[in-house]
Amino acid sequence: MLNGIINVYKEVGFTSRDAVSKLTGILRQRKIGHTGTLDPAAEGVLPMCIGKATKLCELLTDHRKQYIAEIKFGIATDTEDVTGEIIEETNFSNDWYKEKLTEDNLSKVISGFIGRQLQTPPMYSAKRVGGKRLYELAREGKVIERKPCEITIYSIEIKNIDVSRREATIVVDCSKGTYIRTLCKDIGNELGCKAAMKSLVRTKTGNFLLENSYKLDEIEKLVRENRVSEIVIPIEDVFKNLQRVDVSGYACILLENGGIIKAAAVKPDIEALEPKNGEKFRMYNDEGEFKAVYSYNGDINAFKIDKMF
């Protein structure tokens, strides 16, 4: 059984849940989870946690994300992207767009969206309200009040502007929970001409990059060649920023069962580690196997379980 993470490139045309189902069939392994929903019309980085690594799903979902988005100006849709039904058009002249859709003007508009803010989730989203997903309610023709969520947009870079097509391409670096469709819509409203998202590519989630991702057919080929283990990222790599601690003897039994491990039982010794209260460490048994993440408790001079793998 595989345990680790595969950096999957989700293609356009199916949901994140579909991607999990497809990978389940390819690997013939049931315990698989994804690390952040991508719409069917979106593509890009979607790390998948396999086996024991499913315990990392929530942690990896929390990571910062980066996207390349194309904005189509002049229309508003019910889904906030071009796959939806057009509900409003602003038929401004070409001269209007030549004047308004400039790099200077668009930069001024975009600057207002940088930083911590509240964003209202779109009706066509996977967010649950009252036990039902919003898109399920939207398909029933219902529009309900949604509670705004706090997000952070760290930066927005203008990559390209095409005035003749009334389009722009932007690169967005943001927190989890950010709806790029809603951002595109809001940018259009602020510019004064409405907008919808034309396309979306997630290029980065934490340390998982687009250039190091694999499409499902590529993964399937590696499975046939018995080489899929080559692209499975070990669980411990997620915690490579933490100091390593090794234990032996009876402490290995404690480690295997998530027990408290006294400072005197670890290597390097406590003087060399110089642990801070609450600091986390990678824990290994006497066979060099990564087993868990523990936190140091200065009150009892011992290490306590944080997460087992």
Rank of each mutant, 00 (worst) to 15 (best):
A196N: 01
D162Q: 02
E145D: 13
V143R: 09
R139E: 02
R146H: 05
G192E: 08
I151F: 05
F239A: 04
L183R: 00
I144H: 04
T152I: 08
F239I: 02
K194A: 14
T178Q: 04
L200V: 11
E167A: 07
I161L: 03
N226V: 07
F239Y: 15
F239V: 08
V228L: 14
C149T: 10
N212Y: 14
L210G: 01
E167I: 00
I231C: 13
S164A: 15
T203P: 10
G206T: 06
S155H: 14
T152N: 09
T182R: 04
R166D: 04
R146P: 06
E157K: 13
G141T: 10
A168W: 00
V163E: 04
K147V: 08
D186K: 07
G177K: 10
K159D: 12
A195D: 03
D173I: 12
L200T: 06
K215G: 12
E140Y: 10
G177A: 06
Y179F: 15
N212T: 11
D237A: 12
S199W: 05
R202C: 11
S213E: 02
T203K: 07
A168L: 03
R202I: 04
E225R: 14
V201S: 04
Q243A: 13
G177S: 10
N207P: 06
K194L: 11
E140S: 13
L222S: 12
L222R: 15
E236V: 13
A195V: 08
S213H: 08
E145W: 00
